[in-house]
Design a protein around this nucleic acid. Sequence first.
DNA 1: GTTTCTGCAAAGGTTTTGCAACAAA
DNA 2: TTTGTTGCAAAACCTTTGCAGAAAC
Lengths: 171, 171
Amino acid sequence: MGFSMDAAPMIETVRQQLEDFIAAKGLRRTKQRDVIIEAAFGTKEHFNAEELHDMTRKIDRSISRATVYRTLGLLVECKLLREVDLGRDQTFYDPNFLDKPEHNHLICVDCDRVVEFEDDHIAIMEDCITKRLGFSPASKSIRIIAKCDQLERTGACSHLQKTLETGANRH
Amino acid sequence: MGFSMDAAPMIETVRQQLEDFIAAKGLRRTKQRDVIIEAAFGTKEHFNAEELHDMTRKIDRSISRATVYRTLGLLVECKLLREVDLGRDQTFYDPNFLDKPEHNHLICVDCDRVVEFEDDHIAIMEDCITKRLGFSPASKSIRIIAKCDQLERTGACSHLQKTLETGANRH
DNA sequence: GTTTCTGCAAAGGTTTTGCAACAAA
DNA sequence: TTTGTTGCAAAACCTTTGCAGAAAC
């Protein structure tokens, strides 16, 4: 659940890109960094540091929280991973920006679902606004907070059901 | 600096709105809450809890950090204040949503300036996207990260200068 | 062999909370 | 008088960091 079928080729791309970054910076490739990448890009879900730590420990129990935090910094720095603000307390990380560099997020207040979406008009509008204000575009993050139609209509939402059953996404 | 000339009438509106909220919930009006409101809405700048605590202590030195945090929660709950994510570590609060309920933020990576803007097209687009994905709009937050044209062109930015001189906005 | 990396535990910074005294209604 | 509120200090929480040993080059 939550794991992509075609994650394997993606992970090779990621590994290569990190290796280049490591070489350029005179850093070292380690077993821990490989495991953390495997965990981080073996899912298409967003995760926080604690969740990634749990995922890595399923592969190698000895990996420490500190190493997870340090590697997350590295992965963000070399642009393999992006920080996303989902309106929760911790920093979340999104492994899907390699596939879809321009996507944004809709967050449901009812069922906590996070839906990714792309829209070409947004980029154009962002350009206009930025220039109008005397700046140049650097990046953007559009977060839409929404209410679940399914819940409103039927009184139940499949995602909320799932969340309650598995205890996932609790915060 | 950073204080609005017509803050006084605004504060009366705020006080009234909080009073209604307090009455409806069976809470109490206190000296501390009055002071915190005076500080929070006596500026048009965004602030974090620590900064608001400093501002209140200029009016009444005895007000504690805990009360500031608790009152911030109250003000957000009754929609007088809104939390904004400026990409920094702490939560910031924006007192300008009463005046401009639909505004968004542009944040400069060069000079840390935060510019508020409104744009009617955004609301329309947000509606389209939300409905397309099977949700109903609840709220949105668009954050544009930009680069300062002034700095790029002239090698200096008035805001950056000011920031360095006064030590404001440091983080 | 040198330099980077790791795990541990401790520290850092922000926000929340338990509690006894206090103030509002 | 009752109930909500405050200030203090401690706790909780996420994240970073110092250090000695281990691993990569």
